Simulated scan of single mutants.
Amino acid sequence: MAIEHGDLTVSWLGYATARIEASDGTVVYTDPGRYGTLDGTWAQQYGGASHPSSDPYDARDGDLVVVTHDHHYDDDGIERVASEDATLVVYEDVSAERITAGGRDVVPPEDLPYDVRRVAYGDELTVAGVDVEVVPAYNHPDGPNAPGGDPIHPEGFGCGFRLTVDGVPCFWTGDSDVIDAHDDLEVSLFMPSIAQNFTMDRHDAADLAERLAPDLVLPIHYNTFPDLEADSQAFAGDVAGRGVPVVLDED
């Protein structure tokens, strides 16, 4: 379903994919694809959880597509959402060679038929009227997502994005624990991961939501497959109990 937030229409399409549409028709996508979320096979592979499930998605209406890191890079997903004249903003460390060596064959971003821009922590740019700020994202070396002290998402491996769409600052955390870089962000729409593994969990995301005090919280990146299971109803109750508006976008 679609969520209305001010002049924005926002949908969670599954995994880390969110679609944000402005009142002027500008469309932004975060981290499109993977795990059957856009090719219509998610339900057959993982169905049963509270998570979007739909027929194959092939809108090709995105003016801006952002990609946070290797785990969320999917050239097929990008081609399902990007318009012919789309701009693809990709974190600098995303490596098709490394992804392919890991067993998932992908086309390098620069080989796709779009305007591709590589970005690093702290970069700011404007694309299709959307202000893009690149926010650090990583797991703490001494935290639960660093088995043996080796972070699953080390600093420098990926990022998050603050996207100001139609004047509304929207923050997608990427695959990250809660980190100091989050503390001073001005956020109206907060889209955190609430998965039980690999990223901040629902408890840490609720704490961060309370500190950021956004106008609305819409969690994404959970329940896609068993390792990402989360009690979204408990998260929503926790956040609402702190006086922060929250909504779930689930089938």
Rank of each mutant, 00 (worst) to 15 (best):
S188A: 12
P192M: 01
T30P: 08
L218A: 12
D105V: 15
G158Q: 02
E229C: 04
L218W: 06
S11A: 15
E79L: 15
D131K: 04
Y91T: 03
M1R: 13
L125K: 08
P192H: 04
D61M: 13
F161H: 03
P214L: 05
A240E: 13
A120M: 12
S54W: 11
F225H: 14
D231C: 06
L228V: 02
T17L: 08
V247Q: 15
G14W: 01
R211W: 00
Y138A: 03
Y114I: 14
P56I: 07
Q233W: 11
G33Y: 12
G62V: 09
A234S: 12
V178G: 01
E84W: 04
R117C: 13
E110N: 12
A209D: 00
L208K: 00
H140A: 13
G77C: 09
D231I: 02
H69N: 15
V135W: 01
T87G: 12
G6E: 02
Y15E: 09
P52I: 03
E84K: 12
N223P: 09
R60T: 15
D31E: 13
F161N: 03
V66H: 08
V116M: 13
L216M: 14
A86N: 11
R98P: 06
V217E: 04
R104D: 13
I3L: 14
T9V: 15
E133F: 07
E210R: 02
D184Y: 01
Y222R: 02
T41S: 14
T173Q: 02
D183F: 08
V247G: 02
W172R: 05
Y29G: 11
G14E: 05
V10L: 01
H221V: 02
V130M: 10
A181F: 01
G102V: 11
Y138L: 09
A82K: 12
D93M: 13
V10W: 02
D175A: 10
V130H: 06
M1C: 07
P109C: 09
I3G: 09
F190D: 00
E229Q: 14
D75F: 15
G237L: 04
G36S: 10
R162S: 12
G174I: 00
R118Q: 11
H203V: 04
L208C: 03
S53V: 14
A236W: 01
V94I: 13
D31N: 15
C170N: 10
D184L: 07
T30V: 05
H221R: 03
D150M: 10
T199N: 12
R98F: 05
Y114F: 15
T17N: 08
D31Y: 00
A2Y: 07
F225C: 08
G48Q: 09
H140C: 01
G174L: 01
G243C: 08
V130W: 04
S188L: 04
V28W: 04
V116N: 09
T164M: 02
L125W: 10
E155L: 05
Y114G: 15
T100V: 12
P151K: 05
G103I: 08
T41F: 00
S176W: 00
Y138W: 12
V94K: 07
G77K: 06
V28S: 10
P154L: 07
P109G: 13
Y73E: 06
L88H: 11
